[in-house]
Amino acid sequence: MRFLEELRELDFFLLLILLCIQGFGLVAVYSATYDGGTSPFFYKHLTYVILGWLLIIFLSFEKFENLLDLSFYIYLFNLLLLMAVLLYGKEVYGAKRWLHLGFFNVQPSELMKFSLILVSAYLLPAIKSIKDRKVFLLFLIYAIPSLVTLKQPDLGTTVSYYVPLVFMLFVRGVPLRYFILAGMAFLAFLPLAWKYFLKPYQKKRILAVIDPMSDYYGSGYQLIQSKIAIGSGMLTGKGLLSGTQTHLFFLPEKHTDFIFAVIGEELGFIGTFILCSLFLLLFLRLIQYHEMAQRLSEKLFIAGTFSLILFQFTVNTLMTMGMFPVVGIPLPFVSVGGSATITFSAMIGVTQYIYKKYRYPYMKLEKDGIYE
């Protein structure tokens, strides 16, 4: 009975939004992988969605403080998995990003996103100034997995590690001048990155955004086919299982990176508008969570979760519309990807515990200190 009572304290509004978003994903994956019958990819995706919901419920009962105490151990475990990829990883399309563990594959770089947000929420409140030695520890915590992930290679995921950190530092109260200086340093570094660090195929992907027709059958192919798919869907779409770009194999990676193009082609502008509106409601609800939370560590975790989902949603949708270079960034809760589904479900589960903690307005707890 106690379990049912606590279960009723969950935020059913946010969970309903999440269920609707995942419903779009299940329909799109079913269509994208349909080949005369239901594909194993669909059943696999459905299995991870169910596991994700079980994880959400489990973490909604787990004290956030306990997770913070375990954050370094969780981080180190994920780091070992990430390093194991370099030695025992499964190579797909020239990239080593997956570990084969019996009946399933795991992508440690996806799990690392959750670990970094959690350990940052633990460490940042303890940092009192820029000269604190913990700043160097935070640098190492991000630098090591970044180098390993770049080695795979996976530039998109590496960049996604740092987006939540920027938001969390802002919430922490870091002075604006540091962000301005970091931005100027980043802009100054871009020419060097272009000349010495970016691989030829990465440069082609960036240039393809400007003129995809210049390399129609190469770096511009994915962008062109995705734009054709979305544009051909027009207002109401071609209907489920009726997308020509999707089912005549013009659209690449249609069940993962380009799942939004499948939705655009088969459900049209109306379908994509509803999906984007659902994400907007999700973001607004997470902002409310941030306002509800009273402890700094909780605000930091919510900010990290919000920013990561927002970043991946923005990059994925812009990419499929030809407005951003092609990168391996899945659409949260929609694209096929067990590790990503589990990662984002874990984040939502933790936020549910925080929501339950503050759902009653009379609950007042002492706030943590803020950055001076």
Rank of each mutant, 00 (worst) to 15 (best):
A84F: 11
A84Q: 09
D69C: 13
Y88I: 11
Y48P: 00
F58V: 05
F64H: 10
T33K: 05
Y75D: 02
K63Q: 14
L46S: 11
M83Q: 12
I50A: 15
L81T: 02
A84V: 00
V29Y: 12
G36M: 04
E62K: 12
A28T: 02
F64C: 06
L51D: 05
L59K: 02
V27Q: 12
D69S: 13
D69A: 13
A95G: 10
V29G: 06
F42E: 04
L68V: 06
E91P: 05
V29Q: 07
E62H: 09
Y88Q: 13
T38I: 14
M83T: 12
Y48H: 08
A28N: 02
L86H: 12
C20Q: 10
L79T: 02
G23I: 08
Y34I: 05
T33I: 02
V49T: 15
L86P: 14
L86T: 14
W53L: 10
V49W: 05
T38W: 06
L46N: 09
F24A: 02
L59I: 10
Q22E: 15
D35T: 15
I56D: 07
L46Q: 04
S39F: 00
Y30V: 00
V49L: 10
T47E: 12
D69H: 12
Y48K: 02
T33L: 01
Y43R: 09
F77R: 01
N66E: 11
L82C: 08
F64D: 08
L87P: 09
H45D: 10
V92I: 13
L68S: 03
W53M: 08
E91N: 05
L81K: 01
F58Y: 10
L54E: 09
S39Q: 07
I56K: 03
L55E: 09
I57Y: 14
T33C: 06
G94A: 08
L80P: 03
S60I: 01
L26W: 01
A28S: 07
I50K: 06
L15E: 10
I50P: 11
K44A: 07
Y88E: 10
V49I: 15
L67W: 04
Y73D: 00
F24T: 08
A28R: 07
A84L: 11
I21W: 05
G36W: 03
N66A: 10
N66F: 09
L82S: 07
Y75T: 04
